[in-house]
């Protein structure tokens, strides 16, 4: 009942939005939201903030670029029904490997390790020309035509992104109810005790990272179709921080908040040019992140629910002013 209330307006959105709004704001928010969902999933259910999500998304995106039509003449053309599953699979594998590397680390240690992995991958894509075409990367990447319908069409890409986002959220909520999902949450709460139940701790951690790789990979594929190019800058510190900011704005403990964060981020990005010098966008983003961390570490959702709670119970406010 409730999902329908949100889904119907979203399905009707193309009727009211022009192509600019649909593509630059709606579709972009959905894609960014899917990538950030991969982070907030890890943060919520495994309790690990990973800086390597842009890497997993990038591996999927590079796979699509390398095995699909591009204008730099590198790679091998494969039909989309091979390259898409391959891209998702490589993203899952990369997620699992990153989980394996970071499996013994939590908190700030995990942040340091995943950030090192993400930045090392960025430098690797810049150095390597045979697979990644160095820092110029791939351009002219085209979304495939499926049954005569081109996914480059704004409406088609929007609906595909919306469908993927809904599927991703459904997958997350199903996954966390599965035995493996429960074990992942148990590892978050008390890893030593999980072992004492007779369950290995490595499996759930690797599985959580691999699952986040699936989400990030799906976002990465959509993103490379949307941007029509991918380069080292797509996996550099910029996107790493963007994904983090989106997840933090949405609240790291609320997976669906990633989409709220994405809309806020994209609106800021799109209209910042009217507020401040376009060149200083990074300063603006930095200030926004800093303010969120200082004022509302739980993210916008937390802020909103606090306000709602305060409005409903004014006496709480009175108490706090005493």
């Amino acid at each position: 009942m409730r999902p329908a209330l949100i889904l119907i307006p979203l399905l009707a959105l193309p009727l009211v939005l022009n192509d600019f709004w649909l593509t630059q704001v709606a579709t972009r928010s959905l894609i960014l939201g899917i990538m950030a969902l991969s982070l907030s999933f890890l943060a919520t259910y495994l309790g690990v903030v990973s800086f390597a999500q842009a890497t997993m998304a990038g591996i999927a995106g590079y796979t699509i670029a390398y095995f699909g039509p591009n204008s730099v003449g590198i790679g091998v053309q494969l039909p989309f029904w091979i390259s898409i599953p391959l891209a998702l699979m490589l993203a899952v594998v990369s997620g699992g490997l990153i989980g394996l590397i970071a499996r013994r680390s939590r908190g700030i240690y995990a942040i340091m390790i995943t950030l090192a992995i993400g930045v090392a991958f960025f430098y690797f894509t810049r150095q390597n020309y045979t697979l990644f075409n160095g820092w110029t990367g791939f351009s002219g990447v085209r979304a495939p035509e499926i049954g005569g319908l081109s996914l480059r069409d704004p409406l088609a890409l929007y609906l595909l992104s919306l469908g993927t986002a809904v599927l991703a959220l459904a997958l997350v909520s199903g996954f966390v109810r599965s035995p493996l999902g429960l074990t992942i949450q148990a590892v978050r709460d008390a890893p030593g005790r999980v072992l004492a139940l007779g369950i290995s701790v490595t499996t759930p951690i690797v599985a959580a990272f691999a699952f986040s790789g699936l989400l990030a990979g799906a976002g990465g594929i959509l993103n490379v179709w949307y941007q029509e190019r991918i380069s080292s800058f797509s996996v550099g510190l910029g996107p790493i921080i963007d994904i983090l900011i989106v997840a933090v704005i949405g609240g790291l403990r609320h997976p669906a908040g990633a989409f709220v964060g994405a809309v806020v981020f994209v609106l800021l990005d799109t209209f910042a040019v009217d507020l401040i010098d376009r060149e200083r966008f990074n300063t603006l983003i930095g200030v926004v992140l800093l303010l969120i961390v200082i004022v509302a570490p739980g993210g916008l959702q937390q802020l909103a629910s606090d306000w709602v709670a305060r409005l409903r119970r004014p006496e709480v406010k009175e108490k706090s002013t005493v």
Binding site: G107, L244, N282, L290
Partner: peptide
């Protein structure tokens, strides 16, 4: 900034990232 969040390591990390973005841009 960071001194106000002493003990909350995740928040400190995120705040220092924000500061580093701002500094680099300036």
């Amino acid at each position: 900034v960071l001194g106000w969040m002493q003990g909350d390591e995740l928040r400190q990390t995120l705040a220092s990232i924000a500061i580093s973005i701002i500094m680099a841009d300036l």
